[in-house]
Simulated scan of single mutants.
Amino acid sequence: MDNIAGRKPALGWAVNISVILIVLLWIFPTVGLLVSSFRTADQISSSGWWKAFFPTEQTEQFRTADPDGRVQDGDVFVVEGVIFENAEANIASWGTSSRDVSAYAPGETADLGDGETLTLNEDGTYRWTGNDEQISGRGQRFFVTATQPPEFTLRNYDNMLFGGSSDNISKAFFNTLTVTIPATIIPILFAAFAAYALAWMDFPGRALLIAFIVALLVVPLQLALIPLLKLHLSIGIGKGYLGVWLAHTGFGLPLAVYLLRNYMAGLPRDIIENARVDGATDFQIFIKIILPLSFPALASFAIFQFLWTWNDLLVAIVFLVDSSGDTTVMTRHIVELLGTRGGNWEILATAAFVSMAVPLLVFFFMQRYLVRGLLAGSVK
């Protein structure tokens, strides 16, 4: 009796817990990138992203102000300043040597020898004193351990999207849109016509053509990259947007035709036959009946094609990227950042989340059509 349809299984709670754990495992990296993209390099290097919402203790290196700005106070010269712009920072300890960064408490004075001293107060103000020879050079180095309040900044996004440096990803962002949107629409246009013909039009060799399309699904695209590039070069397309559009169209058509054909074949036959009795042509049936009813399958493939094209690196390198860098896409730009800014986690996190933002929006807005399209034609 436990297997009766409609009755909940005994281990339903275990299934629910497993689903929640899987969802959390997928969400954590995305949330980590999002939080890290709003943090500074010092914060990322000193604590994990999960501590970003709580006060953290950090040890940083500072130097006093330029000794050229010193003032004379009796027999000694003095340099004064403040190390923290954030007045909420709470200094726990400080030191003048990297071997003992907690040698002194706030307000204590460090004896640097021969009458030279350094005092750091709890509010972040310091006072460096000494004779004319001692108060010179680059300034006195010291280390401060302080409890910093949670802090977030938009500076990373400002540099990545609007800055004038080589880190600017806005051009690569629009290049990726230029590749992805046509490479998503073109396969759908061709596949929809082909799927209708394979589902509702009777012609010789239709079964063999369907079998051939299914066989193309298991062919690795890497096998076709170099021959297809040689073909593009021989006919004058070369490396450019047209070439990468055609490449993505060719690689996406087998799945598109297969998915849409299965969905269209499962539509009620009575609707098609009634339309033909009323004198509708195949084109009119396709435009006015099939396409509106096939929207879930169209949206499902559009999601997949958009995600594959947006996150693609290999096809873009082969068919698009040139020496000038004017057509660099997001994935290529992030790879270049890994080489030039591999230690700057705040930049990499920001670039990665900008790259993820658009696919996430597309998926969340169209996810209700995904399962309906994938299950199309699986049952009758």
Rank of each mutant, 00 (worst) to 15 (best):
A5P: 10
L374V: 02
L375D: 15
T40H: 06
T176S: 11
R372Q: 13
W200R: 14
A172M: 03
A10K: 14
M1Y: 15
G95Y: 05
G243D: 02
I334A: 01
R261W: 07
S93D: 12
M366H: 13
A146F: 06
G115E: 04
L314G: 02
L216G: 09
V19R: 10
T129Q: 11
G12S: 12
V329N: 09
I210T: 15
G339V: 01
F142T: 02
L375R: 14
D326K: 11
S102C: 14
N344M: 13
K239R: 10
T327K: 12
E273L: 11
L112A: 00
S136V: 10
V23Y: 09
F142I: 02
E85S: 15
L233C: 09
P150W: 07
E57V: 14
L154M: 10
S47E: 12
I237G: 07
A349S: 13
L118M: 00
L225T: 05
E80S: 10
R261T: 13
N86R: 08
L189T: 05
I4E: 15
L255S: 05
P227D: 04
L120E: 01
N168H: 03
L307F: 01
P67S: 04
T59A: 03
N311A: 06
I22E: 03
G137P: 02
R7N: 12
I290S: 06
F142V: 01
K171W: 09
I91M: 01
D322E: 09
F212S: 14
L307G: 07
A14G: 14
L293G: 02
L216K: 10
I83H: 02
V362Y: 00
R261N: 10
F54N: 14
T56F: 11
D68S: 15
P187D: 03
D312C: 08
A256I: 05
N159V: 12
Q72L: 05
P292Y: 07
W94H: 04
F365M: 12
F286R: 02
K171C: 11
D322S: 08
I289G: 06
A92G: 14
G69W: 00
W308Q: 13
N344L: 13
V179W: 07
A110K: 03
S47I: 14
G279V: 02
L233F: 12
F54G: 14
L161T: 01
A316H: 06
S97Q: 13
L348I: 04
P149A: 08
